[in-house]
Design a protein around this nucleic acid. Sequence first.
DNA 1: CTGGATAATGAGTCCTGACTCGACTTGTAC
DNA 2: GTACAAGTCGAGTCAGGACTCATTATCCAG
Lengths: 178, 178
Amino acid sequence: MVEGSPLRADAQRNRARILDAAEAVFAEFGTRASTEEVARRAGVAIGTVFRHFPTKDDLLAAIMKRLLAQLVEEAGKRDLFGFFTHLVALAAAKKTVADLLAGSGVDIRLPDALGHLKEAVGRLLKQAQAAGAVAHTVRLPEVMALLASMCQGALHGGWDKQLQARTLAVIFAGLKRD
Amino acid sequence: MVEGSPLRADAQRNRARILDAAEAVFAEFGTRASTEEVARRAGVAIGTVFRHFPTKDDLLAAIMKRLLAQLVEEAGKRDLFGFFTHLVALAAAKKTVADLLAGSGVDIRLPDALGHLKEAVGRLLKQAQAAGAVAHTVRLPEVMALLASMCQGALHGGWDKQLQARTLAVIFAGLKRD
DNA sequence: CTGGATAATGAGTCCTGACTCGACTTGTAC
DNA sequence: GTACAAGTCGAGTCAGGACTCATTATCCAG
């Protein structure tokens, strides 16, 4: 698909619907949800989904790309702790977040996918360290590891707001002085 | 199966083989590995596996029960930080550990499964607090949450030893003063 | 040694989910 | 308006995995 020709109007509409449906379905049931379910929720036949996204992975990749862009943008608006909190809360609601951070399965399709997020978090880390909010011994890899872990945990454990807060409090204390 | 009669000798041998094979297979490929693969590695026909464990979940439950007992025992031999470190290292190698901690799918079959582990960790936490190694504001739920999260993270992220250590260092610092 | 209970075997069933493709419908350029 | 490329449809194919069961093999009491 080398941008040969613009999509027909109805095709554009359907493509958008499919993406929205996929976003909702995968967020709710995880990446293991069936393509049929996506088609159903989009009000479209299964064949149409596969016309737009020849492979389930292509569909997943499209969703992840969207999500990633959102996260990077979000990172620009917060400090490290705020972003951390936001991400964990999001992961508790959207299974896709944890899947993305874990880079499970889809990573190949998004070459530098996590790269952008990593850079964004790197910036937040530097700021936080400059402000004296985080110890200088802390490095990016472990921050990313903590971020991914907390998202996985929040997802699988079904943490409520309070547990999220108490758990993050421990992490934040550890980042401050380590 | 109300313990009607002791198993025949060959049946006992096969049961043990199946359990060992299942342990290895699920540790390597996660709980999604097929029952066929277990049978293959046990050198046994598929029907035999289902004779001993009528359901894949039954097999999984048996493995998890074993694993859990090991972990609880291990907890008795270490302090909180040591156990934490051990568990994370184990999770990086055995997918079953993270699955167990996440309580995914199999939890119903192991009624108080995590209960025992929780108690054991609770004891470690008390000791650590008594020794002044962990702040008194820290409670059990967040310790369990951190434990489960780190295991998930170590598994999915494929952390090396160094990253494990650096990440845990942050957590430990957070537990000490929070 | 041998009969009958206990196990093992593995081809077959059923189901789910990704993906295909020929018949049909619709947007759009002219 | 019409032709035809672009899109849609959905029954159908295929693969993989859980689980069954009639047949065959194996243990072990007596």
